[in-house]
Design a protein around this nucleic acid. Structure first.
Lengths: 217, 217
DNA sequence: AAAGATATTTAGATATGACTAAAAAAATAT
DNA sequence: ATATTTTTTTAGTCATATCTAAATATCTTT
């Protein structure tokens, strides 16, 4: 598998979450920051390798082996992120790019030993679950903070956008995974949320709220 | 820099050690397990990028920036090897292949933090020195065991061949870096050496002796 | 159901890094 | 010093992964 192939597989997996249907060529092109024609070329190749189900004009979905491959790459990505934060003292907003490279290192032994060394972590620094060796993992029950009803209270368990800009914003306002958040009020005008977090009251924009996952009770 | 370019630079560096002259196209081709014509192509490209001095039919040598690049790759390779052995519990004969991949990860911050995490090691698991960030490092004074005179005594400080086969052989016969070795006798017939190591007497072939570095006094 | 808009695919081109076969230069031997 | 061998380079191909431009299929409107 080339890096490029692996990145396509990962993109298809991420796009396919939730909507269990077919993923469109254009959606993949946008995610990969490439042209639709390049996607078509690659889909033919991945189809040959039995990693995706592809029919002209119908979009693609991952086959069983495609899904397994995707999960193994995601497993590696998230384990490396834990390593960078827990062991090397990286900030959580700095790890993504490096993990994008490390996820392509080929050595099963390495991944297993890394997993052991890290103490079999279940979540990465952004709250995303780490697939087990056999590909199994359970998504937590989570909703976007922006969709929580007024007076709802829950644990902050993850971020949707994991860009450095957003993560830095959270750090600056001392919002961290594991914090308890209570929705006090919602502004009708722009959807801003008044929330209570660690004894503090905070007003956050809808865009912020739409990128924070919480777990209700 | 592509992986391929980096691997060529590394190969030229290794071939250029000792013989401070030009490195031949054929030598590079052999080391890289590729064809001389491919080497010529790449030399033109690396020359464009000012990483090698290349003149048709004259061989190549690294420029100052080529040398720096080579040392930074070697630094990464050796630091990762230390990580794999010290932290992840790999055997010393298992680390080379994985480190060949890890050495191409691009992130200065990662290398620096790894160095710190490992406690600024000076040597990798095979006894090779790890270049500092600024590229400086001192080779130990070392000779091949096969070239040591009879009755010489020294510390085993490194291996020349670091293939799994050779390293496993050393493990099997309990020969490790740091052991004191004394040359008792040399067979005239085939160059075999009688050595004393950890109270034991051992007879080793010349080929073995020609891949072990020792440091006299 | 035809027209227009959007999405997707095909065809043909480019850059990288490899290869083979043939030509040319350098080294070695007679 | 000439012939032979070895080394190195050139020329032309190939595969991968991209791209642009043009063609075609599907979706959306009316």
């Amino acid at each position: 598998m080339t890096f490029s192939e692996e990145n396509y597989i990962k993109a298809i997996y991420h796009l396919g979450i939730g909507n269990e249907k077919m993923v469109s060529t254009n959606a993949i092109a946008e995610k990969m920051e490439t042209k639709p024609s390049s996607v078509t070329d690659m889909m033919k190749k991945l189809s040959e390798k039995n990693l995706v189900n592809y029919k002209k004009y119908q979009g693609v979905s991952l086959t069983e082996s495609g899904r397994k491959l995707a999960l193994s790459i995601i497993r590696k990505h998230r384990l490396w992120e834990v390593f960078l934060v827990d062991k090397l003292d990286f900030q959580w907003d700095e790890v993504h790019e490096v993990a994008e490279q490390l996820e392509h290192i080929k050595s099963e032994k390495l991944v297993d030993k890394l997993d052991t060394y890290l103490g079999y972590p279940k979540l990465d620094p952004h709250g995303d679950p780490i697939p087990a060796k056999d590909g199994k993992f359970k998504e937590m029950v989570k909703i976007l903070l922006s969709e929580a009803p007024i007076n709802a209270m829950g644990l902050c368990i993850g971020v949707k956008d994991s860009s450095a800009t957003f993560l830095k914003f959270l750090d600056k306002h001392k919002i961290a995974l594991g914090d308890t958040i209570k929705v006090l009020d919602k502004e009708e005008f722009d959807g801003s949320l008044h929330i209570q977090i660690k004894q503090r009251n905070l007003l956050i924009s809808e865009q912020i709220a739409a990128n924070l996952f919480i777990n209700l009770g």
